[in-house]
Computed example of a mutant assay.
Amino acid sequence: MLPSIISRYIAGRFLFTILTIFLCCFLLVLLIDFVELIRRGGNKEQADTLSLFLMSLYRVPELTERILPFATLFGSIAAFLNLSRRLELVIVRAAGMSAWQFLTPALFVAAALGIFAFAVYNPASAFLKDKSLEIDARIFGASFSSSGQTASQGWVRQKGEDGDSILKALTSYDNGRKLGGVTVFSYDQLGNFVERIDGKAAELEEGYWRLSDVLVTSAKSAPRHFETYLVSTHLTPQEASETIANPESVPFWQLPHIIDQAARSGLPAYKYRLQYQTLLARPLLLAAMVLIAATVSLKVFRFGNVGKMILSGVLAGFVLYVVTELAKDLGNTGLVNPILSAWLPAIVASLLGFSILLYQEDG
């Protein structure tokens, strides 16, 4: 009974500390992002305070997904330090529990947070990000080039009944079927440049893009403004999802369907496979953060050097983040298998943390 009570107590302390740090980071990011939107949208007629706040509130969850591993690391360090400072770890050890026994509740909390992150939080953040991009396109459109919401990885070349065209958008939502801040360079059947088309928004329909609030510029005539303008395309919704949509904007539960569609269409789906595997590896990554925190926190108050040990934990977390991002870049290009890119950093970090703890506690 006693170990069960202690385990619940430790799990509660870890959960509270991690969520507190995550919430503080969430509110800080929300405040900074909202202030920046107010500054950039000050001269826009459609940019009322409520719309800007909702836009910021909707897109912050997607931004804070990247903060969760660091919140877990710092929250675990803080929890271990509090348990050590109040001599609770000493009491737990005196009661006969080993380090591995009181680490188990913390690892369980980290794994549960990782599962919740990809199963619930990620779909919710993807849905809210779509809402924020709709507000972004409505308020800022093509003129808001520094919104920070990149749609495609570059210019997309597409064929159509009227000839080829090259398209780029600042924002995308609805899996790439709706765009904001659109620029299109149109060519005729012989490959000669015809016109440049700048639209505030675009929506993919069968056989064409429907652009709204459009400025058309060509060498043969003065710039013309149209409320609606059509650009022919053979791009299908599946191809738009793969070539235009940002994989981070796709909910976790839709990723297998998009990957399957891309495979049947003969399109590469490296970035979607990597995103799917990265989310699946999130519980192990968070558990690795707990192990890293334990290696630098368990013996702090017995041997001193508090600041040095905490700094080493922060540096270890930063190095893990850099390695994870490097592996992600390699996986996005197809140079490394997406499964290997997503899982290897978390596995290596977990094994290193486990080995160090094994040496410290039992060596």
Rank of each mutant, 00 (worst) to 15 (best):
E325K: 09
P345V: 05
P338Q: 03
I115W: 04
L286S: 06
Y229L: 12
Q153T: 08
N175F: 08
G141H: 11
R264T: 06
V120D: 06
Q189N: 08
L211V: 11
N175V: 03
A106I: 00
L30W: 14
A245G: 05
I259G: 06
G207Q: 09
M1K: 11
I38K: 14
L37F: 15
S56F: 12
L320P: 03
Y58C: 11
Q275E: 13
V306C: 02
V231A: 09
Y359R: 08
A346D: 01
L315P: 01
V306E: 08
S218Q: 06
A71W: 00
A346V: 04
S152P: 07
R86V: 01
P61A: 07
A137F: 07
F226D: 10
P256Y: 10
Y359F: 10
G141C: 09
A269Y: 03
S249A: 10
E161K: 13
L128R: 05
P247M: 10
Q189I: 07
L298Y: 03
L73V: 10
F118T: 08
V323P: 02
D174P: 02
E227D: 13
L133C: 10
F252K: 05
T217A: 12
L340H: 02
S146W: 03
R86G: 00
L352Q: 00
L23T: 15
A349K: 02
S7C: 08
I18V: 14
E206Y: 12
R282C: 02
F318I: 13
F226V: 13
K44I: 02
F185V: 03
P283D: 05
A47E: 02
S147R: 14
L286P: 00
P223R: 06
D130Q: 11
I292A: 11
A112V: 15
L280E: 11
P223F: 10
L133V: 09
L335R: 02
K159A: 08
E65T: 12
R282T: 14
E195S: 15
N43K: 04
L73W: 07
L230C: 05
I166G: 01
L37S: 09
A294P: 08
E62I: 15
L83P: 02
C24A: 15
P3W: 09
F127A: 11
A293V: 11
G207I: 10
L215G: 02
V109G: 08
G317H: 01
Y229V: 12
S186V: 13
G180C: 09
L128N: 08
L352E: 00
